[in-house]
């Protein structure tokens, strides 16, 4: 039986957030595999994004260890009802029309981070337990940092001479 994120305890929420980053890293790696034969530049971007997600996961893991020590928690992102920060490349005919650029890959990441931030903010408004609310706010701030990473990358991409070639 899946549960809502708001029904979990703070350590559980944090553990799920770690799993989400790990899941996203694997999704990006799969996108990289999809684009490998097609557009190496896009594939490379997705690999970078996977690395970045792993780094996010590592940081959240450190936070977990600091706060809750080695206490185990079996929850993963698949145990919760909501779909948080799931990046999805939605252009179903992208390969047919052969028009995918690095920018689109970055936009996939940006959108996922934005949705995650909005979700955590909304959850913070909804929950009553102070500790949980604080954690949701903290997670929203972390997602805002991640968002900034993609915004920066997109700006670099736009500035690059080959961005639209």
């Amino acid at each position: 039986m899946k549960r809502s994120l708001a029904e979990l305890s703070p350590p559980e929420v944090l553990k799920v957030a770690i799993w989400i980053e790990e899941r996203n890293a694997r999704i990006y790696e799969n996108y990289a595999e999809m684009f490998e034969w097609y557009e190496p530049d896009v594939a490379r971007t997705f690999r970078e994004m996977a690395r970045e997600e792993r780094e996010h996961g590592r940081r959240l893991n450190a936070m977990y260890a600091e706060r809750y020590g080695e206490a185990t928690c079996d929850l993963t992102d698949e145990d919760i009802r909501e779909l948080v920060e799931a990046p999805i490349f939605e252009d179903g005919e992208a390969f047919v029309y052969d028009r995918v650029r690095r920018r689109q890959a970055l936009e996939v990441g940006l959108l996922a981070e934005r949705r995650a931030r909005a979700f955590y903010m909304e959850s913070a408004e909804r929950v009553e337990e102070a500790a949980l609310r604080a954690l949701f706010r903290e997670l929203a701030e972390i997602e805002a940092e991640h968002e900034a990473f993609f915004v920066r990358k997109l700006a670099e991409d736009r500035a690059a001479p080959s961005a639209e070639s």
Binding site: M34, I88, F89, E90, D91, G92, E93, A94, F95, V96
Partner: peptide, 14 residues
């Protein structure tokens, strides 16, 4: 084999 992303395409064309 038709180069679609089956999880995302929305029309029958290809």
């Amino acid at each position: 084999p038709w180069l679609l992303l089956p999880y995302a395409f929305r029309r029958n064309t290809y």
